[in-house]
Amino acid sequence: MGEVRQLGMDAVVKDRGEEAARRVWRGLRELVLDRNDRRKEAAEALGMSFIRAKALIRIAAEPLTLRALAAHLVIDAPYTTLVVDDLVKRGLVERTAHPEDRRCKLVHATEAGLAAARTAGRILDTPPDSLRTLDPDDMATLDRIVARLLG
């Protein structure tokens, strides 16, 4: 009988854990996406759509093929080409021959592209006031939790 009761308690604890996980996830989504979404601000600062800004930030981190960029952005290849074409016209990226595969091109950021990516990064990395004003012990705990979640 005690074993059955323990199995029932394990299910209750698991359900509470799932409930807590959903509550935390909803809270994080609201905090980041609803109350403090900086994507629009970053896009406006660069004068482009956020998908273009996101592509530029990724390209600034390291040169990529169009295929790799499309996979990172989770968009199809033709749209990736349009995004990169626009960034080329703006002087933010260039296409160069791939050193190991002449059939494909690498896209890399120009100096102007690196500067624009840094601007967008500064905007996106600006924490909300509610995070800045956390108690230092709470901030340290949250920092450890986020690091663990990111693996």
Results as ranks from 00 to 15, higher is better:
residue 2 G to S: 12
residue 3 E to R: 09
residue 4 V to R: 13
residue 5 R to E: 13
residue 8 G to R: 13
residue 8 G to V: 06
residue 8 G to L: 15
residue 8 G to S: 10
residue 8 G to P: 00
residue 8 G to C: 08
residue 11 A to W: 00
residue 13 V to H: 02
residue 23 R to L: 12
residue 25 W to Q: 15
residue 25 W to C: 11
residue 25 W to F: 15
residue 28 L to S: 09
residue 31 L to Y: 13
residue 33 L to N: 06
residue 34 D to A: 08
residue 35 R to M: 05
residue 37 D to I: 06
residue 39 R to W: 03
residue 40 K to C: 02
residue 43 A to H: 02
residue 46 L to S: 05
residue 46 L to A: 13
residue 46 L to K: 00
residue 50 F to C: 04
residue 52 R to H: 10
residue 54 K to T: 01
residue 56 L to T: 06
residue 61 A to D: 15
residue 61 A to Y: 11
residue 62 E to V: 09
residue 63 P to I: 04
residue 64 L to E: 05
residue 65 T to K: 03
residue 65 T to A: 05
residue 67 R to F: 03
residue 69 L to R: 05
residue 71 A to S: 12
residue 74 V to K: 14
residue 75 I to H: 08
residue 76 D to N: 10
residue 80 T to S: 09
residue 80 T to R: 01
residue 81 T to V: 10
residue 81 T to S: 09
residue 81 T to I: 06
residue 82 L to S: 13
residue 85 D to W: 08
residue 89 K to A: 12
residue 90 R to P: 03
residue 92 L to R: 07
residue 92 L to V: 06
residue 93 V to D: 02
residue 94 E to K: 12
residue 95 R to F: 07
residue 95 R to Y: 11
residue 96 T to Q: 11
residue 100 E to N: 10
residue 100 E to M: 13
residue 101 D to F: 12
residue 102 R to D: 12
residue 102 R to E: 14
residue 105 K to S: 12
residue 105 K to C: 02
residue 108 H to F: 06
residue 109 A to Q: 06
residue 110 T to L: 06
residue 110 T to D: 01
residue 111 E to L: 09
residue 113 G to V: 02
residue 114 L to T: 15
residue 114 L to N: 12
residue 115 A to N: 08
residue 116 A to L: 02
residue 116 A to Q: 03
residue 121 G to N: 08
residue 122 R to I: 00
residue 125 D to C: 10
residue 126 T to E: 13
residue 128 P to R: 04
residue 131 L to D: 01
residue 133 T to Q: 13
residue 133 T to D: 14
residue 136 P to G: 10
residue 136 P to S: 11
residue 137 D to C: 01
residue 138 D to S: 06
residue 138 D to E: 09
residue 138 D to L: 10
residue 139 M to L: 15
residue 141 T to H: 13
residue 142 L to F: 10
residue 143 D to W: 08
residue 143 D to P: 00
residue 148 R to I: 03
residue 149 L to D: 02
residue 150 L to D: 12
